[in-house]
Design a protein around this nucleic acid. Structure first.
Length: 571
RNA sequence: UCCGGCGUCGUCUAAUGGCAGGACAGCGGAUUUUGAUUCCGCUUACCGGGGUUCGAAUCCCUGCGCCGGAACCA
């Protein structure tokens, strides 16, 4: 089949949802049409967990000829939803690389239609108004072991219920005074079926419909019907909705949706990540509790935060491909995300040099005033490819971490009497260590080997370490923000206490270095420019940067075998 | 005491009654002017117990464990 060929064009791995979609197409269900949807509630920012759902839903639509994925905002709760969130969500989906075309919808588009359906249900005696208190309704619902009691409203005539519902709609009743309930089965073992609430009263301004309505549909009433109205074929959601599936189907029955054209709800496991919290509520707490600087704080797992941190859409999509999709609760190791990130950045970032914690080096035998303009490739694996000039002179900065006065055995960087290579420049040897009154190293006096220009010594002797450096006189200053994992424990939510998870915040998730030194080629770098600082990691220019005031965010470090060895040595 | 879902390397995920494979992590090695990258190699798994079958991760029974469910949230 030519369809098969189309489906195999991309190399995305399959998963059980994709399998179901393929089976349905083979059976000719929905005439072979596939329509999915991504249905965020605009009450917060999108995070990496949403990315999994976005990649799944838009991914399926992309892989099917004529496939369609709607972006539908599930905006049925005016008290928590805002335009700011719908705009950020649209921007994030676009940034991730997906396009909903003309298929931008809102559940609030269907308020009128939903109301018609509800009225028809009341007329058919399938729904009624319950005007007791929330507390009474809760208490008469029964529990897991006992059936509930039937509400008095059930006995009213359709005409009476219609009149009451009309009063609800007109705003004659206060918030909480009454709800519309479907006549389910108060004795059902499935608590969801015990006369589910369809509408509640909220005298609140809605971000789109304004004050047109004061009754708002509940999720179970709105969602399946919205799917149906849009012609969605596969309604993919997360596992916590498995319990809602019978009700999803039941409401479709009530409105008379023909079996052949109705959507099918399919559930998959939401993403969990080690060292990360992904619940919307927790993310809100981090933002509103000022534990982070905002929704786009580079430590946040929000797409806005990750973007600012320096993640690429490609890395996130590759990650989503690799974690797969299943119906098993799972926790993905964050190192898999980091791997996908490094893999992508490694392939796209030019290599440059920057010194984060400068320590001064003076080459005592290097002529005062002389400057080498070294031609250094942006991609060392392509020595003849694009390059930039890097000035080298008598006074340099190297990384403080690259010098130890009393080095352990396996440390092969600079120490008194030791030789190292300065990348692309030459071999130097440490002659003298200068210190201040407190015993801090302030300067290293070194000599350079004039026969090693370029970095290769004439006599062919082996130099184990190569250090990055910048010329003191030529370097630009920059602020560098060193980001690390927001939590220091693998499962921040493991504790019992309500706010215990906050105690697991990593106190050193952000370290700001005010006086880093970067090579002059970086002087005019603009926000979003991503580079590798050789031997350190991947960095991106932050939007806070201004002309003459560079600001870099560390996206992620390079893998660091030495750090592991050093850490073990201490243990 | 109820209803529903789920159990495969440390982690994530394949297998659709026929050799339990991949990725990440870890460990070891080669190359390296980034202790990076790249390359090579290694360790490690079918929740337990029965049954059906020539043959079971897969089908059946049973036990156990984990997750979700009693909002006028989604």
């Amino acid at each position: 089949m030519s369809d098969d060929k189309d489906a195999k064009k991309d190399d995305s791995p399959g998963n059980f949802v994709w399998d179901l979609v393929c089976q349905d197409r083979e059976k000719g269900k929905h005439g072979g049409k596939v329509v999915t949807r991504f249905p965020p509630e605009p009450n917060g920012y999108l995070h990496i967990g949403h990315a999994k759902s976005i990649c799944l839903n838009f991914g399926i639509a992309q892989r099917v000829p004529g496939g369609q994925c709607n972006l539908r905002f599930d905006d049925t709760n005016p008290e928590t939803e805002e335009v700011e969130f719908v705009e950020s969500i649209k921007a994030d989906v676009r940034w991730l690389g997906f396009d909903w075309g003309d298929n931008l919808f809102f559940a609030s588009d269907y308020f009128g239609k939903l109301h018609e359906y509800a009225v028809a249900m009341i007329e058919a005696g399938a729904a009624y108004v319950d005007d007791r208190t929330t507390e009474e309704i809760r208490q008469t619902r029964g529990d897991f072991y006992k059936p509930g009691d039937e509400a008095p409203g059930r006995k009213r005539t359709p005409a009476e219920n219609l009149a009451l519902f009309e009063r609800m709609k007109k705003g004659e009743l206060a918030d909480g005074a009454a709800v519309l309930r479907a006549k389910g089965d108060m004795a059902s073992t499935d608590v969801k079926m015990r006369d589910p609430v369809m509408y509640r009263i909220r005298h609140a301004r809605h971000h789109r419909t304004g004050d047109a309505w004061c009754i708002y549909p509940m999720y179970d009433w709105a969602h399946g019907q919205s799917d149906y109205i849009e012609g969605v074929t596969h309604s993919v959601c997360t596992l916590e909705f498995v319990n809602h599936r019978p009700l999803y189907h039941w409401f479709l029955d009530r409105i008379g949706a023909p079996e052949a054209t109705r959507p099918q709800q399919i559930e998959f496991a939401r993403l969990n990540l080690t060292f990360t919290v992904l619940s919307k509520r927790k993310l809100q707490e981090l933002v509103y509790g000022k534990h982070v600087a905002g929704w786009d704080d580079p430590r946040m797992p929000t797409l806005a935060g990750m973007r600012r941190r320096g993640f690429t859409p490609e890395a996130i999509r590759a990650f989503c491909d690799r974690i797969g999709v299943s119906t098993k609760d799972s926790v993905v190791d964050v190192s898999l995300l980091e791997h996908a990130l490094r893999e992508d950045l490694n392939a796209r970032c030019p290599r440059v040099m920057a010194v984060l914690r400068p320590i001064k080096v003076t080459l005592e035998n290097f002529p005062e005033g002389e400057v080498w303009e070294i031609d250094a490739p942006y991609d060392p694996e392509k020595p003849d490819g694009p390059s930039r000039k890097v000035p080298f002179s008598r006074e340099l900065y190297i990384e403080a971490d690259d010098f130890m006065e009393n080095p352990p055995k396996k440390f092969f960087r600079l120490s008194p009497g030791a030789e190292v290579r300065l990348r692309y420049a030459c071999i130097i040897k440490c002659k003298e260590v200068k210190k201040d009154g407190a015993g801090n190293v302030t300067e290293l006096v070194c000599t350079y080997d004039p026969d090693s220009r370029g970095g290769t010594p004439k006599d062919g002797r082996k130099i184990k370490a190569t250090l990055h450096w910048v010329s003191a006189k030529h370097a630009a200053s920059a602020e560098v923000r060193l980001y690390d994992r927001l939590f220091r424990v693998e499962n921040p939510l493991s504790g019992e206490g309500k706010d215990e998870w906050l105690s697991h915040l990593n106190p050193s998730s952000l370290e700001v270095l005010a006086n880093a030194k970067v090579e002059p080629s970086l002087t005019g770098a603009i926000a979003g420019h991503a580079v590798q600082f050789e031997r350190l990691g991947y960095f991106v220019v932050d939007p806070d940067a201004k002309p003459g005031a560079l600001v870099f965010n560390r996206t992620i470090t390079l893998k660091d075998t030495w750090a592991n060895i050093a850490a073990k040595g201490e243990g």
